[in-house]
Design a protein around this nucleic acid. Structure first.
Lengths: 194, 194
DNA sequence: GTCTATACCGTGATAGAC
DNA sequence: GTCTATCACGGTATAGAC
């Protein structure tokens, strides 16, 4: 909660803000909370950003940019759909772990402001791109037939996205990002049962 | 958003409050929002409940009671651990669907107030009871060996709990609660891949 | 059981000195 | 770039009439 450095940039301030937003929730965080966590006064924050909502927008942008970048990677664009899907799942987990606080914020927006509604639209867009992959994998006969595709997509994302609720890197966790991605892929594609 | 009935009871008010809490988030909901949704004035709400936090506590209590009741059902207490686990998963999905707005609130608390911290402790307790079942199922050799048990528990709950983020009963959804539970059990235990 | 009026405080944000 | 002082507003909650 103490000061992190003598002077801030919008980016270094974002690091602090994202952490506090995640601890208290965006709506539960006041500028007073942020100023105490950053070790500067409330008004000083306004020197770096226009306001609280800009901090949220910057954080969410960062998460969305990284997620969409995954879909443009070569391996996500060639080969059998099921393999592309598996690759996207694995890389999504990577991004989620690497950009944990920012992705967490993205996944928690409720739609109360323009910024939040924009975030929800973009996120839905990403989900649909992955859903399309899953649909093709089913068409190509690589996924089980007795499962609704939209439902499967949602359960898959549910499993992946839930990681932000408990994963804390380097905090006594026994798994790193890569092992986590392996476990998710294994559980999602092969199931728990032996 | 209009009035629902001429006079309210704490319970009928809870129905309205839970809906608005879920739409806007608890911290994002003001007593003004609640009064407009209920069709009565702010001060009238205080005739029925002590304040906003009591509404949250009542909602969360309801969810927790139903969830813990599942663990006491006979089928959850006898037989092979893997079968008990499967039963608990199925019934948890049932409760989640039946008590959707209340469970949703439970799953979203951030720990900013005493009520929220109590909710988090109780929820962790529930998770641990299920984790214990999963651990025994692994011991009895019914789950795959190449998966960490704590991790598997978290991914399993991630999949289940994510349902509250999109399932809306009777709202054009192609699945009912039972089919949903089937799909979750199938996906979690057998996996997506054919 | 519901209302209007109001107390009191914390909120996001700004002004202007240093 | 940071501060203190301050603003207008909306927040939860209460008092007391009907």
């Amino acid at each position: 909660m103490a000061a992190k450095r003598d002077t801030y940039t919008p980016d270094s301030l974002l690091t602090v803000a994202a952490r506090v937003f995640n601890e208290r929730g965006y709506d539960g965080t006041s500028m007073e909370h942020l100023s105490q966590a950053a070790g500067i006064s409330k008004s000083s924050i306004y020197h770096h950003v226009r306001g609280k909502e800009e901090l949220l927008r910057r954080a969410i942008s960062r998460a969305l940019d990284e997620l969409f970048a995954v879909l443009e990677e070569p391996t996500a664009r060639e080969g059998r759909a099921v393999d592309r899907l598996e690759y996207v799942v694995r890389r999504t987990v990577d991004v989620l772990v690497a950009e944990l606080p920012y992705v967490t914020l993205l996944l928690r927006v409720r739609g109360n402001t323009d910024t939040e509604r924009w975030a929800m639209r973009r996120r839905r867009e990403f989900d649909q791109r992955v859903a399309e992959l899953l649909r093709r994998a089913a068409e190509e006969g690589d996924l089980r037939r007795d499962l609704d595709e939209r439902l499967a997509t949602r359960l898959l994302f549910g499993m992946i996205n839930s990681i932000v609720e408990w994963y804390r890197p380097g905090h006594g966790d026994r798994v790193d990002g890569g092992q986590l991605a392996d476990a998710v892929v294994l559980t999602a594609f092969a199931g728990l049962r032996r």
